[in-house]
C-alpha cells in the first residue's frame, strides 16, 4: 500500500465523531484517517459521557450548534463511565439524534455484542483488524462509504 492514499472527495462540513478511550487506538485511528485524507474532520470523545455531551450539546459542549452533527459516529463499545451500547441506546431514544449514522468500531467479535449492537440500532458493525494495513483499509472504506457514498439522513429527521 502506498503511504499516501487517494484522498476521497469529501464535501466540506462532513465530520466524524470518534468515540475512543484507548490513546493508542485513538492515535492509530487518526493515523489511518490521515492516511486516507480524513483526519482534519474528526472530533474525538474519550468516553461515553463525553460523546453524549458532544452530541446533545451539554456539559463542556453546552451551546454547541446542534445542526452541526457528525456525518458518522465511530463508536467503540468498551468505554469508561458509559459504555458504547448505552451511548447508542440514548442516541436512538432522542428525537434529535435517533437517525445519526453510528458505526460500531470495536475489537470485540462476540456474538452478543453484534446482536446487541444491531438491536440498539447501529448502522454498521466493524471489527478493528489487528493488522495495521487492514485497519487502514477498513478506515478508508468506512470513510468513503459514510462520508462520500452514503446520503445523510435529512436534518429534520435527526
Amino acid at each position: 500500500m502506498s503511504a499516501v492514499a487517494e484522498r476521497p472527495n469529501v464535501a466540506p462540513g462532513k465530520t466524524i465523531l470518534l468515540v475512543e478511550d484507548n490513546p493508542d487506538d485513538e492515535a492509530l485511528t487518526l493515523r489511518a484517517l490521515k492516511r486516507n485524507g480524513l483526519s482534519h474532520q474528526v472530533h474525538v470523545a474519550h468516553d461515553g459521557v463525553e460523546a453524549l455531551d458532544y452530541l446533545f450539546g451539554r456539559g463542556a459542549f453546552a451551546g454547541r450548534d446542534l445542526r452541526d452533527q457528525p456525518t458518522v459516529t465511530l463508536l467503540d463499545l468498551k468505554l469508561p463511565r458509559l459504555d458504547g451500547l448505552e451511548v447508542l441506546r440514548q442516541l436512538r431514544a432522542d428525537q434529535r439524534t435517533r437517525c445519526l449514522p453510528v458505526v460500531i468500531l470495536t475489537s470485540s467479535r462476540e456474538d452478543q455484542d453484534l446482536v446487541q449492537g444491531y438491536g440498539y440500532g447501529a448502522n454498521s458493525y466493524i471489527r478493528k483488524p489487528v493488522d495495521f494495513h487492514q485497519f487502514v483499509e477498513a478506515v478508508r472504506q468506512v470513510g468513503s462509504y459514510w462520508l462520500v457514498l452514503n446520503e445523510d439522513p435529512p436534518r429534520n429527521a435527526s
Binding site: 493508542d24 487506538d25 468498551k78 495495521f132
Partner: peptide
C-alpha cells in the same frame, strides 16, 4: 470476552506502531 476485546487492543498497538 476479555480475551476477545482487551487483548486485541495492545496487539493492534504493537502492530500499528511498528508499522508507523
Amino acid at each position: 470476552y476479555a480475551i476477545s476485546h482487551d487483548l486485541r487492543a495492545p496487539l493492534r498497538g504493537i502492530d500499528g506502531f511498528s508499522q508507523a
